[in-house]
């Protein structure tokens, strides 16, 4: 099975993010970029399938800050091929719609059975990438996927519903899956292995002339407003305990 894993770079959320001068994006100059954790889960799930049987994994990402690191790490973990799509502004904010368009125009040329990507990302909390990409490619799509099994020309997909219920459905291949979680925590690639990948493997670069944008324009982004912080309870232990009990009752967290 040919699996393509689409990965994204995001500003590391441990950084103190600031809004740029125009107020239309975060200030990208001094922040460190890391790969999206749900994309890491998608890669891990693909690698687990490769460990179990025959899967050929291609990781694909758009040219973004520190993306080479992410792609080489994926190769070090066991991906077979890494592709970097260029032809856009690598420093700017790539909106999900544009990302889907660029990925789709490359995927149309490439041969694949399954595209995996993270169910969401910090700049795609509504999880549109997988859906829009599937629409663009005219293939089937499932979101919040927590596992899948190969079944001839179809794939059995497990999706998480509310309250921990899991729905199992069958999708005809090819398909795009938005991965919620892998069966295990993403594996560790040692720096030595990543460096070996850098020396022995290459990232294939493909220039894509940008497809038409789907989204609107951002007029303003702003940092979250500060709201009242923690309330410190003071007094003796029994006074504090009484106050805590009262709070728990008033929030309806305890019966009686």
């Amino acid at each position: 099975m040919k699996i393509v894993v689409a990965m994204r770079q995001l500003a590391d959320l441990v950084e103190e993010l600031e809004v740029n001068a125009d107020g239309t994006d975060i200030d990208r100059d001094f922040v460190k970029f890391v790969s999206n954790e749900w994309d890491e889960a998608a890669l891990e799930e693909a690698l687990c399938h490769k460990d179990d049987g025959d899967a050929e994994i291609t990781v694909v990402a758009l040219d973004e800050p520190d993306v080479d690191q992410t792609l080489y790490t994926a190769l070090a973990k066991g991906a077979d091929r890494a592709v970097k799509l260029t032809g856009h502004d690598p420093e700017g904010w790539i909106r999900t719609g544009d990302r889907a368009a660029i990925l789709a125009s490359w995927l149309e040329r490439d041969d694949f059975d399954l595209v995996l990507t993270g169910v969401q990302a910090a700049d795609d909390l509504d999880g549109q990438l997988a859906g829009v990409l599937a629409e663009r490619l005219g293939v089937r799509h499932a979101a919040v996927v927590v596992g899948f099994h190969d079944a001839d020309s179809a794939v059995q997909v497990e999706q998480e519903l509310g309250g921990g219920t899991v729905a199992v459905s069958s999708l005809e291949l090819p398909a795009v899956l938005g991965i919620q979680a892998a069966r295990q925590t993403p594996r560790y690639a040692s720096i030595t292995r990543i460096r070996q990948a850098q020396q022995t493997q290459t990232i294939q670069e493909v220039e894509i002339s940008a497809g038409g944008s789907l989204g609107g324009t951002v007029r303003k982004i702003s940092p979250p407003k500060k709201r009242g912080g923690a309330e410190m309870l003071e007094g003796s232990a029994s006074e504090v305990a009484e106050r805590i009990a009262e709070l728990i009752r008033s929030k309806g967290l305890a019966r009686s």
Partner: peptide
Amino acid sequence: LQNISTQGNSFGKSAR
């Protein structure tokens, strides 16, 4: 280890 590799410290805080 991942924190140290990305930000240079084990606390997972920004290097800055």
